[in-house]
Design a protein around this nucleic acid. Structure first.
Lengths: 242, 242
DNA sequence: CCAAGTTGTCTATGATACTAGACAACTTGA
DNA sequence: TCAAGTTGTCTAGTATCATAGACAACTTGG
């Protein structure tokens, strides 16, 4: 691996090495507590200078993924949150099941007008008044995802304030008399985090995110809320059951 | 956006701009045929030199995402493949439904021994003989994903040759008398493409990929094959139905 | 204690990324 | 035809990336 190989890829070499090591951890080639190969050995496998490897490891160490011990070696630290995608998906339940403490945080709430896309998703007319809620979800102080949620301002007046108080979408819906709801079709893709989300998720620029678009319906199939969520890919793994 | 902001993120500035524009297209802010803002305007919104924007646009143009017209502007070109995740998921059907021509290609087949992980997934003992098939799937000549598939070498002797001939996992299983099969639990996450897959998928280094791990079972629930697939995130969108 | 192997830190050098400014070539609409 | 706005192409200067080598500081096992 040389500068010529990566020419015009737009990612620094040390970043490729860091991604490679991180993937090794994600794939289970290295498990929490394992000792990584020595810097020299890593340098040889990636055909890269040892300094480049050091920079990669430093980046991983700063993110808490590995920990270097002078004279001894570099060791693996972290894990991923298993996130089942079911028709009944509640963030707090999922995080709780993993033995971690769920948190919600309101970033911003504002009024908005429905684009054609949003109107179709929510069964409203284009231009209909909406409440837009920008929120963040954490597990044990680690940011997991940020999501933008839209609700009809007519069906859910003052939804922003209710969310600010309850910090839970489930409780917000309960407040308006919705006892239960189901997730409709979910669209998943991946992308690269933008500067705004990177700051919110405490993620380095250029990290991958899982992008999820979904609409929740009540039991009669009437659309309630539609969401656009961005998950830190390095901290979560979706499970689809059949 | 300055070099200081991106310091130690490991992604080139032009790459962030390119990703931002591409995401604008993915999110529907720009649709195929739309004219992008002028280079100067983009440079201002990202607070970046015009040359940096030009490099970003050049990268997008090379990938066929946009097309520049001198004296006029830069225009949007492409779309994504909708990929439903059901218990009965067949690549050829999905691509066909999108009006495109599905293709399969064998990259490599070899013998392998089951790791503890693979053995558990396939209901075998660790060290059991496996056939490992590295394959690639395309839609209209565009690479969509590469996957590594493992099967028991005892249940499916010579599976590599059969796949080479049929280039279809469904037909391979039929050859061994498996008439129907179902997908079990599927794990989805995102990552950054490595050098090998980047070459196979014709993807630039540092691009995001969707990583899917799944095991297929026969109708009695007996595990047949387990797969590790990597999808070019920029070309596909998963649909989860509830 | 010693030797081998590990991570930490320094200096130096060439290649690349980004910025900056200027101007050419072309398209569009008035 | 003309002016404004667009993309294309030069030249330069500065900061960062990656390589290279040497040595210090520390851990581990014999």
């Amino acid at each position: 691996m040389s500068m010529q190989d990566t020419a015009s890829s737009g990612v620094a070499l040390w970043r490729l090495v860091a991604d490679g090591i991180e993937r090794g951890i994600a794939d289970g080639r290295f498990v929490a507590g394992d000792k990584l190969p020595g810097e020299m050995e890593i340098a040889e496998t990636y055909r890269v200078n040892r300094h480049t490897v050091r920079r990669a490891l430093a980046a991983l160490a700063e993110r808490g993924i590995v920990r270097a011990e002078r004279g001894s070696g570099t060791y693996v630290e972290a894990q991923k949150l298993a996130y089942p995608l079911r028709s009944r998906t509640r963030f707090s339940e999922i995080v709780g099941a993993d033995g971690r403490e769920p948190h919600g945080r309101l970033i911003e709430a504002s009024d908005d007008a429905a684009t054609r896309e949003l109107a179709r998703e929510l069964g409203l007319k284009a231009g209909a008044p909406l409440v837009r809620i920008e929120a963040m979800r954490l597990a044990d102080r680690t940011p997991i995802c940020v999501s933008t949620t839209w609700l009809s301002a007519e069906l859910f007046p003052g939804a922003g304030n209710v969310f600010a108080a309850t910090r839970s979408m489930t409780k917000l819906l309960e407040h308006y008399g919705v006892r239960d709801y189901r997730r409709g079709a979910t669209r998943i893709t991946a992308g690269i985090v933008d500067a705004t989300d990177a700051a919110r998720l405490d993620l380095a620029l250029g990290r991958p995110i899982l992008v999820v678009d979904a609409t929740d319906h009540d039991l009669d199939g009437k659309p309630l809320v539609t969401k656009h969520s961005r998950f830190a890919a390095e901290r979560v793994e979706f499970l689809v059951e059949s």
